[in-house]
Design a protein around this nucleic acid. Structure first.
Lengths: 334, 334
DNA sequence: TTGTACGCGTTATCAG
DNA sequence: CTGATAACGCGTACAA
């Protein structure tokens, strides 16, 4: 059995209250008793129980992170940064991967509720009413990461519409006129909402008087395979296609891979620009031009906001981070 | 304030013992009181506190996972599987990334100790005496994942030596005679121990009477960049090199990338075989031949063992999983 | 079938 | 400066 504060108190011939005081450096005790207590602690190898402490303190020093199926390098960037901030704040992180289209989300929410987490970060997730209502009941600060919501919830995200617009415009400025897109969403709208990256793409095209129709956009599921199949479909539908904007880098990788397999040269035959600027872009063949959304900064910001809310209850505002094209070698001038 | 079991008891005009019984389906109560209690629970939106329960139960239904800096797709495979098993067992997982060479490891162990986790999984980490001693004091079941130890601790891992031997032999059988290796370890030995994958490489060469010396092996830090610099160094030292075995796929990707940048064709000019068979291999240009170590199975096994130990206290034996070459297009016959 | 009382490990309050 | 004692929220013998 692990030793408790009582054992220490007994061994040091003091009350457990005193032990607690020494433990938390609260002052109000003599040097002598402090030494006695410290000694007993060392001898008994006593280590306080965070869970018992949490019971009285109403704080578990644990936060939850809900993550959907994202590119693994994105998940890692998010998780890593959040963890880093959390640990600096003396908290630990419980991760929950919400696999396929969040049917498990409610279950995880309950689990986290039961664990009495101090706060919750949801990444890249559409905040459904069901979730929101439940989280409100949990009475736990929530921060959205790489997501937006109409509910009064702070979020940290990029402007996906603008970023997609920028990427498309970049292609246009490079002289491309036949431009396709491969989206990661299987349908054109999510829960009735337009997909920002798709809209940005469309609007950039319209604004520059470049023709497009449904055949210029393929829909998939954000996987590399979708990039592979997407390329052939796009080429089939638009034979004189010269450039492709992919909704994320993973799809972009798929395009690169499919191009390699079918003897299509990038960027000579076709230009490709991705999005997210994951670390792998640099190592593609050719290195993939992409749009950085500063995910690491996003995660850090979100985590910081989270802890601010935990500490001070204060309402915190939203942050929309910028984006930046990272030129590499997958796009050429037309 | 969140409602407690007392509030429910009061509302339903029963004792909290009865509420507890209903909550845990322990029987011994009339249908009528059950209904009353359930109703009160619903009205008050009562949800039991796992931390209060943990205090009496001595079980927090939380396990810890310690991860070093690995390829993000590996981390994800590990984490995802462990999480999946954990959630099925009604537990959640706290992640701890031990960043650069584990100086933080002890701090994390203390944190997990304080959190009173039920069990601990350490991935790809050399179990130092300091860690081991501390974990023994924690009195928490420990499972090593993708690691081996002389301490009496169950582990689930591949036989790295054999896998490397197999990979090298594969290259030899393809007719290669000038073979280099890029290791991810900065030095030839870790804490006095030879690196299994390096030894497997060397022995395969020796056993087949193929000459090699120090110039045939480059050391780095498991990053893609090391693959990039490693390639040029290797070629400089061994101009007639025809094949490279990289200690992991990430380094292999670096080699592919560096080759692309310097106009070296893979596999025409040089063959490359990686290790781990991460999901990205399939999408490299060319697709990277690798050795699968079945990491997903490893993680699942480790997690299952973990929960067996938690449930039954029983000593559990070790598992060494097999490996398999996954042929793609980065190696050609010489 | 139901209620009482106590333990779990810690912190906080109030005396002394 | 220090010590009882009461929470905290839940489980569980034991008693009724």
């Amino acid at each position: 059995m692990t030793n408790t504060i009582n054992d220490v108190a007994q061994k040091a011939n003091v009350s457990k209250a005193t032990v607690s005081r020494v433990l938390n450096n609260q002052g109000g005790y003599s040097e002598k008793t402090k030494r006695k207590v410290l000694e007993a602690i060392k001898e008994l190898e006593y280590f306080p129980s965070g869970i018992a402490r949490g019971l009285t303190n109403k704080r578990t020093h644990t936060i939850g992170v809900l993550l959907p199926n994202l590119t693994s390098s994105l998940i890692n960037e998010f998780l890593h940064k959040i963890e880093s901030v959390a640990h600096n704040a003396g908290s630990s992180v419980i991760v929950c991967h919400t696999e396929s289209q969040g049917i498990k989300t409610m279950k995880y929410l309950q689990l986290l509720h039961e664990k009495r987490i101090d706060g919750l970060i949801m990444a890249s997730t559409a905040l459904k009413k069901e979730y929101y209502d439940y989280i409100v009941k949990m009475k736990v600060p929530l921060v959205l990461l790489s997501a937006y919501s109409d509910y009064p919830v702070p979020y940290v995200t990029a402007n996906d519409y603008n970023a997609a617009y920028t990427a498309t415009k970049y292609l246009i400025q490079k002289g491309h006129k036949k431009i396709g897109m491969i989206s990661g969403n299987e349908v054109e709208c999510i829960a009735g909402n337009k997909i920002p990256r798709v809209e940005g793409f469309k609007d950039a095209l319209s604004d520059h008087n470049i023709f497009f129709d449904d055949r210029h956009i393929e829909y998939g599921r954000f996987s590399i395979d979708d990039g592979m199949t997407g390329l052939s479909k796009l080429i089939e539908q638009i034979p004189d296609l010269t450039a492709i904007f992919t909704e994320n880098d993973e799809i972009g990788m798929g395009v690169l891979s499919a191009a390699y397999n079918s003897g299509i040269k990038v960027p000579e035959d076709i230009s490709v620009i991705g999005m997210d600027d994951i670390s792998l872009c640099k190592f593609m063949s050719p290195p993939l031009t992409s749009v950085s959304l500063f995910h690491s900064d996003m995660a850090e910001k979100a985590a910081n906001i989270m802890f601010e809310m935990i500490e001070s209850q204060a309402e915190v505002k939203n942050y929309i981070l910028g984006h930046q094209i990272v030129e590499r070698q997958s796009v050429r001038s037309q």
